[in-house]
Write a protein that binds this DNA or RNA. Structure first.
Lengths: 192, 192
DNA sequence: TTTATATACGGAATGCAATTCCGTTTATCA
DNA sequence: TGATAAACGGAATTGCATTCCGTATATAAA
């Protein structure tokens, strides 16, 4: 079974390259968890036991690495939308999914901030996350049609939630939760 | 009349030092407007016609410079609270002041982002703005007591609005306005 | 096997902005 | 009109990010 990188690139990686790529992903997860997604590239390369040149050949931008490291997590979050939609009434399902998304970004140190960075290397990161997470959110919003303000798009709601999570950490999460709850209330209050 | 820097420092600056400080502030305003508050320090020093050493002697951190450059604007925004409180019913005054604050941060390229940066040099910037803007906001919220959710503090509301403005530019401002309006609606909706 | 070669490797070299350092200059005041 | 504290400029240093390139190796054809 070809893995994701193969499937996307076309040409399979040489055995040593694949080994190093996997080592980099594992190292990056460890370093990201310890130091955040802005950790020096050298730290990650060292942890993986490869040179920085090898790192850059595989992940030209930091965003490429972040996307790869959290690929599965993002997919699981996207998939949760369907489950929640089946379990709860429309508006509740929407609210629960937003919680689920908040857990995703707040748990990964610095991810919420990186997601909204203006740096060119990161616009691709936001685009990737957005492309995979906004459609499920849009589905939930459509299902709650009539209970949510009609002038708010899924994409901007998604961005707003991410922004409110930017300063949050796992220990200091209650402010972000409260502000998002205010936002979600506003979403319902202004329903057409 | 001693100027603000004198008043805060204690010792008046030597004539050449004051001249350079003023030149740096003027240059910084121009450069910030053109390139944003993250512009290279060298650009600002060059524009002012001084060496970078002179810059750093006067403004040890970039935050010091930003605070000084926008000092008057921040004061005017703080003062607007009283005016608005006298002109409008409590909740409306609150909403108007939030608009006023948004104008302040969105007009200054990159300011909203810097305001929420995690970098150590910037925590002082947020603290300064927060110390001068949250009290007036708190006054407005207290006046609208009963019409706003009681579990939301002025400080966190202030931070939330700033966060939602982070990606906004003067041209692309409507999304931030809409999201803040949703937030403000939520504030009222959940009123005790 | 062997060998040709496309890939990949490591880490030195380079680039760039932030920040510090220090020998020289100047404003101030006795 | 000195003495001296304060300030000046910009070279040097630092700390990454990113590129470059000579060497090594996996792969597959002979």
């Amino acid at each position: 079974m070809r893995d994701r990188a193969d499937a996307e690139e076309g040409q399979p990686l040489r055995a040593d390259a694949k080994r190093n790529r996997d080592a980099l992903l594992e190292a990056a997860l460890a370093v990201f968890t310890a130091e955040g997604v802005d950790a020096p590239i050298k730290d990650i390369a060292d942890e993986a036991g490869v040179g920085v040149g090898t790192f850059y050949r595989r992940f030209p931008t930091r965003a490429d690495l972040i996307v790869a490291v959290y690929h599965h997590e993002v997919d699981r979050c996207a998939a949760a939308a369907a489950t929640l939609a089946a379990q709860y009434p429309p508006f509740e399902a929407l609210a629960h999914w937003i919680d689920r998304f908040m857990d995703l970004v707040v748990t990964k140190r610095g991810l919420a901030t990186a997601l909204h960075s203006e740096a060119p290397a990161y616009v691709e990161l936001r685009a990737d996350f957005e492309a995979r997470l906004v459609p499920p959110l849009k589905g939930l919003m459509d299902a709650a049609h009539g209970e949510v303000r009609a002038d708010v798009s899924a994409a901007e709601l998604w961005r707003a939630v991410g922004l409110l999570c930017a300063p949050a950490t796992p220990e200091n999460f209650s402010e972000a939760r409260r502000m998002v709850s205010v936002l979600v209330n506003g979403l319902r209050f202004g329903a057409a």
